[in-house]
Design a protein around this nucleic acid. Structure first.
Length: 123
RNA sequence: GCAGAGGAACAGGUGUUCGCUGGACGGUAACGUCUGGAGGAAAGUCCGGGCUCCACAGGACACGAUGGUGGGUAACACCCACCGUCCGCAAGGACCGGGAAAGUGCAACAGAAAGCAAACCGCCGAACGGUGGUCACGAACGGACUUGUCCGUGCAUGACCACGUCGUGGUAAGGGUGAAACGGUGCGGUAAGAGCGCACCAGCAGCCUGGGUGACCGGCUGGCUGGGUAAACCCCAUCGGGAGCAAGGCCAAGCAGAAGGAACGGCAACUUUGUUGCCUCGAACCGGUCCGGUUCGCUGACCUUCGGGUAGGCUGCCAGAGGUGCUGAGUAAUCAGCAUCCCAGAGAAAUGAACACCCUCGACAGAACCCGGCUUAUCGUUCCUCUGCCGAC
RNA sequence: GAGGUCGUGGUGUAACGGCAGCACAGCGAGCUUUUAACUCGCGCGGUGGGGGUUCGAAUCCCCCCGGCCUCA
């Protein structure tokens, strides 16, 4: 059962640019020194995420490294996150962020976002 | 041993756990098992090709690229070998390395002069003048007397000498300059000089039916010749049709159309009211222009503009100018034959994370249609070949 | 993927292959009770980096670096 929960399925990722645009349009954010998170409530039983890492972070190797760390942070901490959110994760421009940094920031930001969105949700 | 030159390879490793992704197999399915999963530069996009579409990919001009020769290659601006010039004691290295007697242009400042060769300053008394001097001779005048001699004066002629202060002439050796000054150095020669002569060097032309496939090299002879810049325009030779995987193909789904656009005729044949061919006109295409070509032409289509719909799936999409090994050809780049292997293929986009141990403590850096190069970035480690110097035998 | 354009003092911008200017800003002096304005003077020191062609390069050629823009 524990094994099951650490899988990272394709359904947990955002795939269309339309979804990205809608989440950006909602303009609900939270973040700290390591991470910035955009969020929107979805009508699903799962929490999904997308990544956006601009070229200002560096070359392809640097950007790949950040992307993989963020994927790992989401995968390992998925069970601790609120359910039913669409997230866009944007790392800050710094070189010293570790997996622990991203994990802590992700959990903190998501709980804050969950509280922010809750009152507007009729369900 | 020290210093150096050229080249090649590698790019942390191992284990456990949790994950991602292509394929195969099993399973109705969820999923499970096995197996594959970034680089030498994957990068920059600087060249060259393949592939796909534009009907074919034609000619001329324009434009662009290349630029020693020969070879390699699918092709190249790449590679190999050689030639030439320069650098290095050498191993070796560097070179956009065609043409400047086809033409046009450019060279600030300085300098006598910057491209035609002369002018200018200088140098030259050998030549013709000129000036001056000496001597000889002639005639003239004056004087003396021994009465036909001597002395003096100036004139004419001739010879010789001097003068570059003058003219004609000779000369380009020298002239502070400059990046560059009409071959260079030396000896002879001369009035002064000069390829004027000679030796060597450099360049050019001719010859040796010299050597080499060729770039080029060698020898002999001749005369002394014509600057640099073409990464200035240009000329010559060779090459180049355009666009790019968001190319392109198939399927599914879906919507709504509107406005504008040009010119049709003639002739001939026929199986006779229509087809075909030719001419002319027009449109579109062959994405620079012209020629030339292809297709179409009175109601369907085409083109332009505006508007509307879709943003899904499959394919292209990885077996290839492929890797490895051996043999053979070739100086080599490379090619041929045989054997063997299958080695990323995504689509918001896969290689990661944690822990442990070891070592030399890990650089630059991430495939997006594919391949050959070039260029740039790069912590280091190892190996091979060669050169010079020193030492020992 | 295919192209274009630019890089010059702190800032903005000029410069046929031949001395790198101009304006603003800065500093100093003058004027003024002081400031601003004005006048005079001054300097900082600069062609994105490397290499080449040329006697000589901001300019021409090649390779990099960076910025901006266009098309699909």
């Amino acid at each position: 059962m524990q094994k099951q929960n650490q899988k990272l399925l394709s359904e947990m990722r955002l795939h269309s640019s339309l979804e990205f645009s809608e989440i950006y349009a909602a303009r609900i954010t939270a973040g700290d020194a390591h991470l910035l998170v955009f969020a929107r409530r979805n009508q699903l039983e799962a929490t999904r995420f997308g990544l956006s890492i601009s070229r200002k972070h560096g070359g392809a190797v640097v950007r790949n490294r950040k992307r993989r760390l963020l994927r790992e942070a989401f995968r390992l901490n998925r069970t601790q996150l609120p359910i039913g959110l669409d997230l866009i994760l944007i790392p800050r421009q710094r070189l010293d962020s570790t997996l622990q940094d991203f994990s802590r920031s992700l959990i903190k930001a998501c709980r804050k976002l969950d509280r922010l969105i809750q009152p507007h949700d009729p369900a």
